[in-house]
Amino acid sequence: MRSKRAELLVGSFIVLGLLAFVYLAVQVSGLGFNSKKDSYHVVARFDDIGGLSDRAKVTIAGVTVGSVDSISYDKKLYMAKVTMSIDSDVNNIPEDSSIAILTSGLLGEKYLGISIGAEDKMLKNGDEIRDTQSALVLENLISQFLFNKTSGSDK
Protein backbone atom coordinates (compact mmCIF):
# COMPACT_ATOMS: atom_id res chain seq x y z
CA MET A 1 0.00 0.00 0.00
CA ARG A 2 2.59 2.45 -1.16
CA SER A 3 0.05 5.00 -2.35
CA LYS A 4 -1.70 5.12 1.05
CA ARG A 5 1.59 6.06 2.61
CA ALA A 6 2.17 8.70 -0.06
CA GLU A 7 -1.24 10.16 0.59
CA LEU A 8 -0.53 10.29 4.30
CA LEU A 9 2.76 12.07 3.74
CA VAL A 10 1.25 14.50 1.27
CA GLY A 11 -1.48 15.24 3.78
CA SER A 12 1.01 15.87 6.55
CA PHE A 13 3.08 18.02 4.21
CA ILE A 14 0.13 20.24 3.37
CA VAL A 15 -0.94 20.48 6.99
CA LEU A 16 2.60 21.36 8.08
CA GLY A 17 2.81 24.02 5.38
CA LEU A 18 -0.47 25.56 6.49
CA LEU A 19 0.59 25.34 10.13
CA ALA A 20 3.77 27.20 9.26
CA PHE A 21 1.63 29.86 7.64
CA VAL A 22 -0.62 30.17 10.68
CA TYR A 23 2.41 30.19 12.95
CA LEU A 24 3.96 33.02 10.97
CA ALA A 25 0.71 34.93 10.90
CA VAL A 26 -0.05 34.63 14.62
CA GLN A 27 3.29 34.36 16.35
CA VAL A 28 5.48 36.44 14.05
CA SER A 29 3.25 39.16 12.72
CA GLY A 30 1.17 39.27 15.88
CA LEU A 31 -1.98 39.07 13.83
CA GLY A 32 -4.18 38.23 16.76
CA PHE A 33 -7.77 37.19 16.80
CA ASN A 34 -8.29 40.27 18.92
CA SER A 35 -7.88 42.44 15.85
CA LYS A 36 -11.56 41.89 15.33
CA LYS A 37 -12.22 43.15 18.87
CA ASP A 38 -14.71 45.98 19.02
CA SER A 39 -13.16 49.38 18.88
CA TYR A 40 -14.12 53.00 18.35
CA HIS A 41 -12.42 55.64 16.26
CA VAL A 42 -10.90 58.87 17.46
CA VAL A 43 -9.24 61.60 15.43
CA ALA A 44 -6.34 63.88 16.32
CA ARG A 45 -4.60 66.59 14.33
CA PHE A 46 -0.90 67.28 14.68
CA ASP A 47 1.42 69.96 13.36
CA ASP A 48 4.09 67.39 12.69
CA ILE A 49 3.84 63.63 12.98
CA GLY A 50 7.57 63.15 12.36
CA GLY A 51 7.63 59.56 11.16
CA LEU A 52 4.56 58.09 12.83
CA SER A 53 3.31 55.18 10.73
CA ASP A 54 0.16 53.14 10.23
CA ARG A 55 -0.41 50.46 12.85
CA ALA A 56 1.65 52.36 15.39
CA LYS A 57 0.36 51.64 18.87
CA VAL A 58 -1.72 53.98 21.01
CA THR A 59 -0.96 53.79 24.71
CA ILE A 60 -2.31 55.02 28.01
CA ALA A 61 0.11 54.84 30.92
CA GLY A 62 2.38 52.82 28.66
CA VAL A 63 -0.20 50.12 28.00
CA THR A 64 -1.33 49.56 24.42
CA VAL A 65 -5.02 50.31 24.04
CA GLY A 66 -5.31 50.75 20.28
CA SER A 67 -3.54 51.45 17.03
CA VAL A 68 -3.30 54.02 14.26
CA ASP A 69 -5.67 53.30 11.37
CA SER A 70 -4.68 55.93 8.88
CA ILE A 71 -2.71 59.10 8.49
CA SER A 72 -3.70 61.80 6.01
CA TYR A 73 -3.01 65.43 5.31
CA ASP A 74 -5.71 67.92 6.22
CA LYS A 75 -5.49 70.46 3.42
CA LYS A 76 -7.58 73.18 5.09
CA LEU A 77 -5.73 73.29 8.38
CA TYR A 78 -2.29 72.38 7.02
CA MET A 79 -2.08 69.66 9.61
CA ALA A 80 -1.70 65.91 9.74
CA LYS A 81 -4.89 64.04 10.56
CA VAL A 82 -4.42 60.76 12.41
CA THR A 83 -7.30 58.35 12.81
CA MET A 84 -6.88 55.70 15.47
CA SER A 85 -9.02 52.93 16.86
CA ILE A 86 -9.21 52.35 20.56
CA ASP A 87 -10.50 49.19 22.23
CA SER A 88 -14.10 49.71 23.20
CA ASP A 89 -13.60 48.50 26.75
CA VAL A 90 -11.32 51.51 27.27
CA ASN A 91 -14.33 53.84 27.17
CA ASN A 92 -13.46 56.27 29.94
CA ILE A 93 -11.01 58.66 28.30
CA PRO A 94 -12.02 62.22 29.24
CA GLU A 95 -12.63 64.64 26.36
CA ASP A 96 -9.90 67.02 27.46
CA SER A 97 -7.19 64.35 27.43
CA SER A 98 -4.08 65.21 25.51
CA ILE A 99 -2.21 63.09 23.02
CA ALA A 100 1.49 63.15 22.17
CA ILE A 101 3.73 61.45 19.67
CA LEU A 102 6.40 59.65 21.63
CA THR A 103 9.46 57.68 20.70
CA SER A 104 10.48 54.39 22.23
CA GLY A 105 14.13 54.86 23.01
CA LEU A 106 16.29 57.39 21.27
CA LEU A 107 15.87 56.13 17.73
CA GLY A 108 13.01 53.66 18.14
CA GLU A 109 9.53 53.54 16.76
CA LYS A 110 7.06 56.42 17.10
CA TYR A 111 3.85 55.77 18.99
CA LEU A 112 0.99 57.74 20.50
CA GLY A 113 0.56 58.32 24.18
CA ILE A 114 -2.67 59.66 25.73
CA SER A 115 -2.48 61.64 28.97
CA ILE A 116 -5.74 61.58 30.87
CA GLY A 117 -7.62 64.86 31.44
CA ALA A 118 -10.10 65.83 34.12
CA GLU A 119 -13.46 66.38 32.43
CA ASP A 120 -16.51 64.21 33.07
CA LYS A 121 -17.52 63.79 29.45
CA MET A 122 -15.83 60.86 27.79
CA LEU A 123 -14.60 60.42 24.19
CA LYS A 124 -17.03 58.70 21.84
CA ASN A 125 -16.72 57.27 18.38
CA GLY A 126 -15.72 60.00 15.89
CA ASP A 127 -14.61 62.52 18.50
CA GLU A 128 -11.45 64.50 18.21
CA ILE A 129 -8.68 64.93 20.75
CA ARG A 130 -7.91 68.65 20.54
CA ASP A 131 -4.91 68.89 22.82
CA THR A 132 -2.09 67.45 20.75
CA GLN A 133 1.63 67.54 21.07
CA SER A 134 3.70 66.97 17.96
CA ALA A 135 6.62 64.70 17.58
CA LEU A 136 9.95 65.86 18.81
CA VAL A 137 12.03 66.18 15.68
CA LEU A 138 15.63 65.68 16.51
CA GLU A 139 16.93 68.25 14.03
CA ASN A 140 14.67 70.94 15.51
CA LEU A 141 15.82 70.11 19.02
CA ILE A 142 19.44 70.36 18.02
CA SER A 143 18.99 73.67 16.24
CA GLN A 144 17.07 75.05 19.22
CA PHE A 145 19.82 73.96 21.52
CA LEU A 146 22.48 75.51 19.33
CA PHE A 147 20.47 78.73 19.05
CA ASN A 148 20.13 78.97 22.83
CA LYS A 149 23.81 78.30 23.23
CA THR A 150 24.84 81.05 20.83
CA SER A 151 22.37 83.58 22.18
CA GLY A 152 23.52 82.65 25.70
CA SER A 153 27.16 83.31 24.90
CA ASP A 154 26.26 86.73 23.46
CA LYS A 155 25.24 88.01 26.85
Binding site: F21, L24, A25, Q27, V28, S29, G30, L31, R55, K57, E109
Partner: peptide, 19 residues
Protein backbone atom coordinates in the same frame (compact mmCIF):
# COMPACT_ATOMS: atom_id res chain seq x y z
CA UNK B 1 12.62 38.96 20.58
CA UNK B 2 8.95 38.26 19.99
CA UNK B 3 7.48 41.65 20.79
CA UNK B 4 9.82 43.61 18.53
CA UNK B 5 9.22 41.04 15.81
CA UNK B 6 5.47 41.28 16.15
CA UNK B 7 5.56 45.04 16.19
CA UNK B 8 7.41 45.34 12.93
CA UNK B 9 6.00 42.44 10.94
CA UNK B 10 2.79 43.23 9.16
CA UNK B 11 0.58 40.40 7.99
CA UNK B 12 -0.37 42.01 4.67
CA UNK B 13 2.83 43.62 3.56
CA UNK B 14 5.22 41.00 4.82
CA UNK B 15 3.61 37.58 5.03
CA UNK B 16 1.13 37.89 2.19
CA UNK B 17 3.62 39.61 -0.10
CA UNK B 18 6.13 36.86 0.60
CA UNK B 19 3.46 34.32 -0.24
Amino acid sequence: FWSLMQQSVNFDTDILNGL
